[in-house]
Simulated assay, not measured.
Amino acid sequence: MKNVIKIASLLILLAIGKGGSAQQNIQFTQYIFNSMSVNPAYTGYKEQWFAQLGLRSQWLGIAGAPETGLLSIDGILDSENKRHGLGMQLTADRLGPQAATSAYANYAFRLRLNDEDTQRLSFGIGAGVTQYSLDGNLLDPIDGSDLVLPAGKISNWVPDVRFGIYYYNPKWYFGASVMDLLSGDQSNNIFRWDNTTTDNIRRRRHIYVIGGALFNLAHGLCFRPSLLVKDDFKGPTAVDVNAMFIFGERLWIGGGWRTGVTVFEREYNRMSGNSLSGRNAFSAVTQLYVTPALRIGYSYDHIVSRLSSVQHGSHEITLGLTFGRKADRILSPRFF
């Protein structure tokens, strides 16, 4: 067991050794309800087949602001031993003239750590492909003959892999993952036209660290704090702090704070006159189990920066559905 953990940790450290330069990765505020979007080792955690649809509209009121859709499904292949998790993710993301459409297959090997089966350690891998596109028709250059811009819409496909580890018990969880390993490889440009190349719409390689806990405050009332740390090896480290109150296992109400912190000395720190504000946004989040199988989530993000005066926040909605055959026994509700 120790050797397996050491090998997985070494793979993650080797993978993050190279940094990339491109756009930030997609992140849903409601990752706290389904962490497969930030860690493939989470696949199958609910031990039931679960499908989720997520829609996010960011910075309402700004033309060309990011819009994202996510459709995922995951579950376990063996309901008795519950060792093999399998999942699929489809993501569509648009930012002005840039777009990225992804499809991933995730697999998680889930090790049982105790006789009661209340602790599991998972190792996950995801493989997929992303189509990056750039629509020159949506650009309005000052010089109409600017050769740096494409004359029309161009696109290219980039394969990708991701790795993760995830541990949980009924009281707390911890996970680490590396995403967009191949997308962060800058050895080749995505696009080439008129002897001009561009590579700035490719997603960056990121490392994610997640963790959280569950506290029983009273009968039918739980408190669930959580933390996400995200780093792209170029800019400030992003930190998400969230806290949710859970009433009767059906209604979740809480919020979060997203900010950037300077952890490592990087190029942007050394550039004269360049500073990046650590203030970002706070969010209000809720989720309701309409039935034991159907859940609806909503969140609103409010920007705390100069951008707040020109936009109306970010809205996100998720629909989750549990279906199919249940595992033989689930020893604790899936709060993580």
Score class of each variant (00 low, 15 high):
P225L: 15
N200Y: 06
F245K: 09
L251T: 03
A218G: 06
P236D: 05
I201E: 12
Y208S: 03
G255S: 06
R224G: 00
T237P: 01
T259Y: 04
F223T: 00
N242Y: 13
I246F: 05
T198D: 14
R258W: 03
R202S: 12
L214G: 01
D231F: 03
R258N: 12
T198Y: 05
A238N: 06
K230H: 04
D232A: 08
V261G: 03
D231V: 03
D199G: 08
T237M: 14
G248H: 08
P236H: 11
L251F: 10
T197S: 12
N242T: 08
L227E: 11
F191I: 10
K234T: 09
R250V: 01
W193Q: 04
G254V: 02
L227R: 01
G220I: 07
F191W: 04
H206I: 07
A238Y: 04
Y208K: 01
V261K: 06
F223G: 00
G235S: 13
I207K: 06
N216W: 02
P225I: 07
R202Y: 07
F215L: 13
F245P: 02
N242D: 14
W252V: 02
F223P: 02
I201G: 00
L251C: 05
F264V: 14
F191K: 09
F215C: 05
N200I: 15
V239F: 11
G260D: 07
L251I: 11
R205W: 08
R204C: 04
M244G: 01
M244S: 06
G255E: 09
W252H: 08
T198C: 02
V239H: 02
